[in-house]
Design a protein around this nucleic acid. Structure first.
Lengths: 262, 262
DNA sequence: TGCCCAACTGTTGTATACATCAGGGCCGTG
DNA sequence: CACGGCCCTGATGTATACAACAGTTGGGCA
């Protein structure tokens, strides 16, 4: 009954300091034709919580299938259930969690079929990013991408999977940004975040880091040559390989089952 | 004070009194997630409201830029602000509305640059849908697609733009579904919905219906031949044309201004 | 007369109280 | 002894009350 799959979630004391006042950009548009034109945006508690919870999920503090108890979270974040609930609603719309009415909110647990679907879409989106990036990347962005690539190499030497994982995320995100399509960047980032908990599992597969790095090199090279087709194909293959490898991994780990509540 | 740009949203007359028992659950579920039917999930009031509001936005009852007043909506739907707020939070995560803290919630208003970005992504996603559909579509699905195509032809004769618009949506959605990738279908549907209010504007462009229909024919033909590449290229061109045409339209309507917040 | 500051007002954000429902245990019965 | 229904418990969903804040407006001062 009290299985790990529905373990309680508390992460006490890891969160505090609600004093962060993240004021955003001031008005980039001094007059918007109406006095009611929205100007600056301080994000509310609920939105701040959404970011926190999203990071907690992506970083593995909550595993797929975990229940997110609103009262425990309210206790941990020293607020009431209301903003917690709103944050969870938003996360559900992003696909990070799943709300089962009257039964609770759970971190999205994807089955093999779900993951294949998402990796396919991820490959297509990243392919688009790479294609556009090959055409539109600036010198500064290219330099940053090279630097991120070198960071990956550094982590490679020590076989530090976690650090490599982080540098890898930076590398990919820089490609998204280099597409110069903000919406595409946003969507790719969101999907990347959803898949992150699952990608983590395949980190420790033998020699995977080296292979990944080699694939990165091919991608970077194609982008440097501004070869849109090659860049697209290279990154699509890269992502699809991740998906396939994960699929293999799942086949050997039957305890990772499908969504039990579905 | 009460300026046109932030016109109040009450739709009191258009909204019928929802005293219809909220228990009339999934009866009218157009195209929710198809994830293995997770139980008799009678959706909560907030989720029901999300669907209602989403439809209202997509169908043009709320125009981009309109403010969604929680108290008015609560009055119209005979509930408190809480579920309204949760529904709006979800819609924000979907990109349908924009919440400006302490300022109010507004239907997302996209500028020209935003629209170009989204049409580009839409073209890529639909291209993927068509590519997969060409390979995976079943006979039943193909028959349905042909039927939807013929429905488009019918609307064409009478130059009934609104009905054509609806049939067009069905046609595209069937292609999404024929990809047999539920996640891709979901994402494409979501983006399609976001763009719908803008697509509507170009409906009455002269001869656009005929052109659109001809493009549909090329797409259908390619899918019938199971020619994945041709299908992909045809639908990408189709979507990109919509984007370009919309872009042209916007250039002649300067009063459609950008979204004030990046 | 014009500008600046301060209280006001209406809205949004959060907390709390209440209603409703799913799940489980207990009891009665076949 | 097994099965099925009822009540109880605990959680979630909703309503309402309260607090904080953006924009406004009126008054005071230069």
């Amino acid at each position: 009954m009290a299985e790990k799959s529905t373990r309680e979630v508390s992460m006490t004391a890891s969160r505090n300091a609600p004093e962060t006042t993240p004021e955003d950009r001031a008005a980039t548009r001094p007059e918007g034709r109406t006095a009611a034109a929205p100007r600056l945006s301080r994000l509310s508690r609920a939105q701040w919580l959404r970011e926190q919870l999203e990071n907690a999920i992506v970083d593995g503090h909550f595993a797929p299938g975990d229940r997110l108890d609103p009262v425990a979270l309210a206790r941990d974040y020293a607020c009431s259930r209301t903003p917690i609930r709103e944050a969870l609603q938003q996360l559900e719309a992003s696909g990070m969690v799943r709300v089962y009415p009257k039964r609770g909110t759970f971190v999205t647990q994807l089955g093999v079929a779900d993951l294949i679907e998402r990796f396919d879409v991820m490959a297509e989106l990243e392919g688009m990013c790479a294609r556009l990036a090959a055409r539109r990347i600036t010198q500064e962005e290219l330099a940053g991408l090279r630097q991120a690539h070198e960071s990956c190499r550094d982590c490679l030497d020590g076989s530090d999977a976690d650090r490599y994982y982080h540098a890898n995320g930076t590398f990919h995100h820089l490609i998204y940004a280099a597409s110069h399509n903000a919406f595409l960047t946003q969507e790719a980032t969101r999907l990347h975040a959803i898949l992150k908990p699952y990608r983590r599992l395949q980190l420790h597969v033998h020699h995977r880091l080296q292979e990944s790095f080699a694939e990165h090199e091919a991608i970077l090279e194609a982008i440097e040559r501004h070869d849109a087709n090659a860049a697209r194909r290279a990154i699509q293959q890269h992502v699809q390989l991740q998906g396939n490898r994960f699929n293999d991994l799942m086949a050997t780990m039957p305890q990772l089952r499908e969504d039990p509540l579905a």
